[in-house]
Design a protein around this nucleic acid. Sequence first.
RNA 1: AGGUCUGUAGCUCAAUUGGUAGAGUAGUGGUCUCCAAAACCAUUGGUUGGGGGUUCGAGUCCCUCCAGGCCUG
Length: 305
Amino acid sequence: MIIGALVGATAVGKTRMGVAIARELNAEIISTDSRQIYAETAIGSSQPSKEDRGGIVHHLMGFLSPAQAYSVAAFCRDVHDLVQENPDQAFLLVGGTGLYLQALMLGLSPLPEIEPSLRVRLESIRQRRGLAFLHRWLAHVDPVIGSRLSPGDSQRILRGLEVYLQTGKLWSSFQGMRQGGMGSFPVAWMDRPREELYRRIDLRTHSMVRMGWIEETEHLIKNYAQDVPALQGLGYHHLIQVLEGKVPLDQAIPEIQQETRNYAKRQLTWFRNKSSAQYFLVSEGAEIAEISPFLTFFKSFRKIP
RNA sequence: AGGUCUGUAGCUCAAUUGGUAGAGUAGUGGUCUCCAAAACCAUUGGUUGGGGGUUCGAGUCCCUCCAGGCCUG
Protein backbone atom coordinates (compact mmCIF):
# COMPACT_ATOMS: atom_id res chain seq x y z
CA MET A 1 0.00 0.00 0.00
CA ILE A 2 1.27 3.44 -0.89
CA ILE A 3 0.79 5.82 1.99
CA GLY A 4 1.96 8.92 0.19
CA ALA A 5 4.70 10.73 -1.67
CA LEU A 6 7.35 13.23 -0.73
CA VAL A 7 8.37 15.48 -3.60
CA GLY A 8 10.60 18.50 -3.91
CA ALA A 9 13.34 20.06 -5.99
CA THR A 10 16.76 18.50 -6.19
CA ALA A 11 18.96 19.15 -3.14
CA VAL A 12 16.04 20.30 -1.03
CA GLY A 13 16.67 17.51 1.46
CA LYS A 14 14.04 14.93 0.49
CA THR A 15 16.25 11.96 1.16
CA ARG A 16 16.90 12.76 4.79
CA MET A 17 13.34 13.80 5.45
CA GLY A 18 12.00 10.75 3.62
CA VAL A 19 14.01 8.37 5.75
CA ALA A 20 12.87 10.09 8.93
CA ILE A 21 9.23 9.95 7.87
CA ALA A 22 9.45 6.33 6.69
CA ARG A 23 10.92 5.30 10.01
CA GLU A 24 8.10 6.92 11.94
CA LEU A 25 5.44 5.41 9.70
CA ASN A 26 7.11 2.02 9.45
CA ALA A 27 7.32 2.31 5.68
CA GLU A 28 9.74 1.33 2.98
CA ILE A 29 10.82 3.88 0.40
CA ILE A 30 10.25 3.74 -3.34
CA SER A 31 12.48 6.15 -5.20
CA THR A 32 10.53 8.28 -7.67
CA ASP A 33 13.56 9.44 -9.55
CA SER A 34 14.46 8.79 -13.15
CA ARG A 35 18.20 9.00 -12.48
CA GLN A 36 18.62 7.18 -9.23
CA ILE A 37 17.45 3.98 -10.85
CA TYR A 38 20.91 3.45 -12.29
CA ALA A 39 23.70 1.45 -10.70
CA GLU A 40 27.22 2.86 -10.64
CA THR A 41 25.92 6.43 -10.52
CA ALA A 42 25.64 6.72 -6.76
CA ILE A 43 27.42 10.06 -6.57
CA GLY A 44 26.16 11.66 -9.77
CA SER A 45 22.54 10.88 -9.05
CA SER A 46 22.86 11.57 -5.31
CA GLN A 47 21.82 8.17 -4.07
CA PRO A 48 21.92 7.96 -0.30
CA SER A 49 24.65 5.86 1.24
CA LYS A 50 23.92 2.85 3.42
CA GLU A 51 24.28 5.01 6.52
CA ASP A 52 22.01 7.73 5.10
CA ARG A 53 19.32 5.15 4.44
CA GLY A 54 19.28 4.48 8.15
CA GLY A 55 18.11 0.90 7.80
CA ILE A 56 15.10 1.83 5.70
CA VAL A 57 14.65 -0.35 2.62
CA HIS A 58 14.91 1.64 -0.62
CA HIS A 59 13.34 0.30 -3.81
CA LEU A 60 13.99 1.17 -7.46
CA MET A 61 17.32 2.70 -6.62
CA GLY A 62 20.62 1.78 -8.24
CA PHE A 63 19.21 -1.42 -9.71
CA LEU A 64 19.53 -0.89 -13.46
CA SER A 65 22.59 -1.16 -15.68
CA PRO A 66 23.79 2.27 -16.89
CA ALA A 67 23.39 1.11 -20.47
CA GLN A 68 19.74 0.18 -20.05
CA ALA A 69 16.92 2.46 -21.12
CA TYR A 70 14.06 3.09 -18.73
CA SER A 71 10.72 4.81 -19.08
CA VAL A 72 7.68 6.09 -17.29
CA ALA A 73 5.81 2.94 -18.22
CA ALA A 74 8.57 0.76 -16.81
CA PHE A 75 8.46 2.74 -13.61
CA CYS A 76 4.71 2.33 -13.26
CA ARG A 77 4.99 -1.37 -13.93
CA ASP A 78 7.77 -1.78 -11.36
CA VAL A 79 5.81 0.06 -8.68
CA HIS A 80 2.68 -1.95 -9.39
CA ASP A 81 4.62 -5.17 -9.06
CA LEU A 82 6.23 -4.08 -5.85
CA VAL A 83 2.95 -3.09 -4.26
CA GLN A 84 1.18 -6.21 -5.41
CA GLU A 85 3.87 -8.54 -4.15
CA ASN A 86 3.88 -6.90 -0.71
CA PRO A 87 0.25 -6.14 0.05
CA ASP A 88 0.82 -5.52 3.72
CA GLN A 89 3.83 -3.30 3.39
CA ALA A 90 3.51 0.48 3.62
CA PHE A 91 5.45 2.38 0.95
CA LEU A 92 6.47 6.00 0.83
CA LEU A 93 7.40 7.45 -2.57
CA VAL A 94 10.33 9.85 -2.42
CA GLY A 95 11.71 11.68 -5.41
CA GLY A 96 11.61 14.60 -7.79
CA THR A 97 10.48 13.22 -11.13
CA GLY A 98 7.04 14.75 -11.49
CA LEU A 99 6.07 12.84 -14.60
CA TYR A 100 6.63 9.50 -12.91
CA LEU A 101 4.42 10.40 -10.00
CA GLN A 102 1.70 11.77 -12.24
CA ALA A 103 1.68 8.66 -14.42
CA LEU A 104 1.51 6.47 -11.37
CA MET A 105 -1.60 8.23 -10.12
CA LEU A 106 -3.40 8.92 -13.39
CA GLY A 107 -2.11 6.11 -15.59
CA LEU A 108 -0.85 6.31 -19.16
CA SER A 109 -2.31 6.07 -22.65
CA PRO A 110 -2.44 2.47 -23.84
CA LEU A 111 0.36 2.83 -26.36
CA PRO A 112 2.41 -0.14 -27.49
CA GLU A 113 6.15 -0.07 -27.09
CA ILE A 114 7.85 1.63 -29.96
CA GLU A 115 10.41 -0.23 -32.04
CA PRO A 116 13.78 1.34 -31.19
CA SER A 117 14.75 1.14 -34.85
CA LEU A 118 11.93 3.52 -35.68
CA ARG A 119 13.42 6.26 -33.59
CA VAL A 120 16.81 5.68 -35.15
CA ARG A 121 15.24 6.05 -38.58
CA LEU A 122 13.47 9.26 -37.61
CA GLU A 123 16.70 10.61 -36.16
CA SER A 124 18.47 10.07 -39.42
CA ILE A 125 15.69 11.78 -41.34
CA ARG A 126 16.03 14.66 -38.95
CA GLN A 127 19.75 14.80 -39.68
CA ARG A 128 19.17 14.88 -43.39
CA ARG A 129 16.08 17.03 -43.76
CA GLY A 130 15.85 18.95 -40.54
CA LEU A 131 13.39 19.24 -37.71
CA ALA A 132 11.11 21.61 -39.61
CA PHE A 133 10.47 18.89 -42.18
CA LEU A 134 9.43 16.43 -39.48
CA HIS A 135 7.20 19.04 -37.91
CA ARG A 136 5.40 19.65 -41.20
CA TRP A 137 5.04 15.92 -41.72
CA LEU A 138 3.53 15.44 -38.29
CA ALA A 139 1.24 18.44 -38.69
CA HIS A 140 0.06 16.98 -41.99
CA VAL A 141 -0.92 13.58 -40.57
CA ASP A 142 -1.95 14.78 -37.11
CA PRO A 143 -3.04 18.42 -37.23
CA VAL A 144 -4.19 18.40 -33.61
CA ILE A 145 -0.76 17.55 -32.28
CA GLY A 146 1.00 19.47 -35.03
CA SER A 147 -0.60 22.74 -34.11
CA ARG A 148 -0.05 22.17 -30.44
CA LEU A 149 3.65 21.47 -30.58
CA SER A 150 6.19 24.21 -31.00
CA PRO A 151 8.41 23.79 -34.08
CA GLY A 152 11.42 23.45 -31.81
CA ASP A 153 10.03 20.68 -29.68
CA SER A 154 12.16 17.94 -31.17
CA GLN A 155 11.35 15.30 -28.62
CA ARG A 156 7.59 15.41 -28.99
CA ILE A 157 7.70 15.84 -32.76
CA LEU A 158 9.65 12.61 -32.97
CA ARG A 159 7.32 11.01 -30.47
CA GLY A 160 4.25 11.95 -32.46
CA LEU A 161 5.70 10.52 -35.63
CA GLU A 162 6.90 7.29 -34.09
CA VAL A 163 3.47 6.66 -32.59
CA TYR A 164 1.89 7.27 -35.96
CA LEU A 165 4.33 5.09 -37.90
CA GLN A 166 4.17 2.24 -35.40
CA THR A 167 0.43 2.12 -34.78
CA GLY A 168 -1.04 3.80 -37.82
CA LYS A 169 -3.08 5.87 -35.39
CA LEU A 170 -2.67 9.45 -34.29
CA TRP A 171 -0.92 10.34 -31.10
CA SER A 172 -3.66 12.83 -30.40
CA SER A 173 -6.21 10.01 -30.49
CA PHE A 174 -4.47 8.39 -27.56
CA GLN A 175 -4.28 11.54 -25.51
CA GLY A 176 -7.03 11.70 -22.98
CA MET A 177 -7.10 7.95 -22.61
CA ARG A 178 -5.40 6.93 -19.43
CA GLN A 179 -5.25 3.47 -17.99
CA GLY A 180 -3.78 1.76 -14.99
CA GLY A 181 -3.59 4.69 -12.62
CA MET A 182 -3.41 3.90 -8.92
CA GLY A 183 -5.55 6.85 -7.98
CA SER A 184 -4.33 9.71 -5.91
CA PHE A 185 -2.54 9.55 -2.62
CA PRO A 186 -1.29 12.29 -0.33
CA VAL A 187 1.63 14.26 -1.76
CA ALA A 188 3.82 16.49 0.38
CA TRP A 189 5.90 19.08 -1.43
CA MET A 190 8.98 20.01 0.53
CA ASP A 191 10.37 23.41 -0.40
CA ARG A 192 12.86 25.99 0.84
CA PRO A 193 13.38 29.69 0.26
CA ARG A 194 14.71 29.98 -3.29
CA GLU A 195 18.06 31.45 -2.32
CA GLU A 196 18.61 28.73 0.23
CA LEU A 197 17.79 26.03 -2.30
CA TYR A 198 20.21 27.46 -4.84
CA ARG A 199 22.91 27.74 -2.22
CA ARG A 200 22.44 24.10 -1.30
CA ILE A 201 22.73 23.09 -4.95
CA ASP A 202 26.00 24.97 -5.29
CA LEU A 203 27.41 23.40 -2.14
CA ARG A 204 26.27 19.92 -3.05
CA THR A 205 27.96 20.11 -6.43
CA HIS A 206 31.27 20.76 -4.73
CA SER A 207 30.78 17.97 -2.26
CA MET A 208 29.87 15.53 -5.03
CA VAL A 209 33.19 16.26 -6.71
CA ARG A 210 34.95 15.79 -3.40
CA MET A 211 33.24 12.43 -2.96
CA GLY A 212 34.69 11.20 -6.23
CA TRP A 213 32.23 12.14 -8.91
CA ILE A 214 34.98 12.52 -11.49
CA GLU A 215 36.33 9.05 -10.73
CA GLU A 216 32.81 7.68 -10.99
CA THR A 217 32.44 9.28 -14.41
CA GLU A 218 35.80 7.93 -15.53
CA HIS A 219 34.75 4.44 -14.52
CA LEU A 220 31.46 4.76 -16.40
CA ILE A 221 32.93 5.93 -19.70
CA LYS A 222 35.58 3.23 -19.44
CA ASN A 223 32.94 0.51 -19.17
CA TYR A 224 30.11 1.93 -21.23
CA ALA A 225 29.58 4.20 -24.18
CA GLN A 226 29.49 7.92 -23.53
CA ASP A 227 25.89 8.17 -24.68
CA VAL A 228 24.35 5.53 -22.41
CA PRO A 229 21.18 6.63 -20.63
CA ALA A 230 22.77 6.83 -17.19
CA LEU A 231 25.22 9.47 -18.41
CA GLN A 232 22.41 11.76 -19.50
CA GLY A 233 22.06 12.98 -15.95
CA LEU A 234 23.16 16.47 -15.03
CA GLY A 235 26.86 17.05 -14.88
CA TYR A 236 28.21 13.91 -16.48
CA HIS A 237 28.81 15.38 -19.90
CA HIS A 238 30.65 18.29 -18.30
CA LEU A 239 32.85 15.92 -16.35
CA ILE A 240 33.58 13.90 -19.48
CA GLN A 241 34.89 17.11 -21.02
CA VAL A 242 37.05 17.62 -17.96
CA LEU A 243 38.41 14.07 -18.21
CA GLU A 244 39.21 14.67 -21.87
CA GLY A 245 41.11 17.78 -20.91
CA LYS A 246 38.80 20.01 -22.95
CA VAL A 247 37.42 22.01 -20.05
CA PRO A 248 39.08 22.89 -16.73
CA LEU A 249 37.27 21.69 -13.62
CA ASP A 250 36.88 25.18 -12.24
CA GLN A 251 34.89 26.07 -15.31
CA ALA A 252 32.83 22.89 -15.33
CA ILE A 253 31.66 23.23 -11.74
CA PRO A 254 29.85 26.56 -12.17
CA GLU A 255 28.24 25.21 -15.33
CA ILE A 256 26.98 22.14 -13.51
CA GLN A 257 25.66 24.30 -10.70
CA GLN A 258 23.87 26.51 -13.19
CA GLU A 259 22.29 23.55 -14.96
CA THR A 260 21.17 22.08 -11.69
CA ARG A 261 19.57 25.35 -10.58
CA ASN A 262 17.71 25.55 -13.88
CA TYR A 263 16.49 22.02 -13.39
CA ALA A 264 15.33 22.73 -9.86
CA LYS A 265 13.28 25.63 -11.17
CA ARG A 266 11.56 23.42 -13.72
CA GLN A 267 10.73 20.96 -10.98
CA LEU A 268 9.18 23.71 -8.91
CA THR A 269 6.95 24.73 -11.81
CA TRP A 270 5.75 21.16 -12.05
CA PHE A 271 4.96 20.75 -8.37
CA ARG A 272 3.25 24.10 -8.23
CA ASN A 273 0.93 23.44 -11.13
CA LYS A 274 0.64 19.72 -11.66
CA SER A 275 0.90 17.85 -8.46
CA SER A 276 -1.88 19.21 -6.24
CA ALA A 277 0.55 18.67 -3.41
CA GLN A 278 0.40 20.01 0.10
CA TYR A 279 3.09 22.65 0.46
CA PHE A 280 5.65 22.53 3.26
CA LEU A 281 8.27 25.22 3.55
CA VAL A 282 11.31 24.28 5.59
CA SER A 283 14.45 26.22 6.24
CA GLU A 284 17.96 25.63 7.43
CA GLY A 285 18.50 24.95 11.11
CA ALA A 286 15.05 23.58 11.76
CA GLU A 287 15.29 20.48 9.62
CA ILE A 288 14.64 17.78 12.18
CA ALA A 289 12.06 19.72 14.10
CA GLU A 290 10.19 20.27 10.86
CA ILE A 291 9.30 16.62 10.50
CA SER A 292 6.17 16.79 12.61
CA PRO A 293 3.96 18.66 10.11
CA PHE A 294 4.81 16.01 7.53
CA LEU A 295 3.93 13.22 9.92
CA THR A 296 0.66 14.84 10.84
CA PHE A 297 -0.14 15.23 7.17
CA PHE A 298 0.54 11.62 6.19
CA LYS A 299 -1.06 10.17 9.30
CA SER A 300 -4.26 12.08 8.68
CA PHE A 301 -4.84 9.98 5.57
CA ARG A 302 -4.26 6.63 7.20
CA LYS A 303 -7.30 4.61 8.00
CA ILE A 304 -7.73 3.84 11.65
CA PRO A 305 -7.86 0.03 12.00
C1' A B 1 53.46 61.72 -11.89
C1' G B 2 53.15 61.71 -17.47
C1' G B 3 50.94 59.15 -21.58
C1' U B 4 47.16 55.95 -23.32
C1' C B 5 42.75 52.87 -23.59
C1' U B 6 38.17 51.44 -21.46
C1' G B 7 33.64 52.34 -18.53
C1' U B 8 26.20 50.37 -22.03
C1' A B 9 20.74 45.17 -18.34
C1' G B 10 23.38 40.79 -12.61
C1' C B 11 27.30 38.80 -16.44
C1' U B 12 29.54 38.76 -21.72
C1' C B 13 28.99 42.07 -25.49
C1' A B 14 26.03 45.00 -29.91
C1' A B 15 24.27 49.83 -31.60
C1' U B 16 25.60 51.94 -39.56
C1' U B 17 28.13 58.96 -41.38
C1' G B 18 25.32 62.06 -33.91
C1' G B 19 18.38 60.29 -34.70
C1' U B 20 16.75 58.97 -28.84
C1' A B 21 19.48 51.49 -26.57
C1' G B 22 19.47 45.62 -28.44
C1' A B 23 21.23 40.25 -28.27
C1' G B 24 22.98 35.94 -25.62
C1' U B 25 22.98 34.38 -20.74
C1' A B 26 21.29 34.70 -15.78
C1' G B 27 16.68 35.94 -13.19
C1' U B 28 11.24 35.17 -13.24
C1' G B 29 6.74 32.72 -15.04
C1' G B 30 4.77 28.75 -17.99
C1' U B 31 4.21 23.87 -21.04
C1' C B 32 4.63 18.74 -20.13
C1' U B 33 0.79 11.24 -21.11
C1' C B 34 6.60 5.93 -22.42
C1' C B 35 14.41 9.76 -23.48
C1' A B 36 11.54 13.89 -18.12
C1' A B 37 18.30 15.42 -14.27
C1' A B 38 14.70 15.36 -20.98
C1' A B 39 12.48 18.57 -24.75
C1' C B 40 10.23 23.24 -25.22
C1' C B 41 7.61 28.37 -24.69
C1' A B 42 7.12 33.33 -22.74
C1' U B 43 9.03 37.53 -20.21
C1' U B 44 10.95 41.52 -16.36
C1' G B 45 15.58 44.33 -16.03
C1' G B 46 19.40 49.95 -18.32
C1' U B 47 18.54 58.13 -15.65
C1' U B 48 24.42 54.11 -21.57
C1' G B 49 30.19 55.75 -14.51
C1' G B 50 28.85 61.26 -12.45
C1' G B 51 28.43 66.41 -13.94
C1' G B 52 28.56 70.20 -17.61
C1' G B 53 28.72 71.82 -22.86
C1' U B 54 27.76 71.81 -28.46
C1' U B 55 23.22 70.34 -31.28
C1' C B 56 16.43 70.36 -33.25
C1' G B 57 18.50 65.67 -31.35
C1' A B 58 24.47 62.66 -27.85
C1' G B 59 25.86 55.84 -25.91
C1' U B 60 28.12 58.20 -30.12
C1' C B 61 31.43 65.02 -30.50
C1' C B 62 33.96 68.56 -26.60
C1' C B 63 35.35 69.69 -21.29
C1' U B 64 35.72 67.97 -16.39
C1' C B 65 35.54 64.62 -12.35
C1' C B 66 35.43 59.38 -10.72
C1' A B 67 36.79 54.13 -11.39
C1' G B 68 39.70 50.44 -13.76
C1' G B 69 43.45 48.43 -17.38
C1' C B 70 48.08 49.06 -20.02
C1' C B 71 52.80 51.71 -21.10
C1' U B 72 56.71 55.02 -19.39
C1' G B 73 59.15 56.84 -15.10
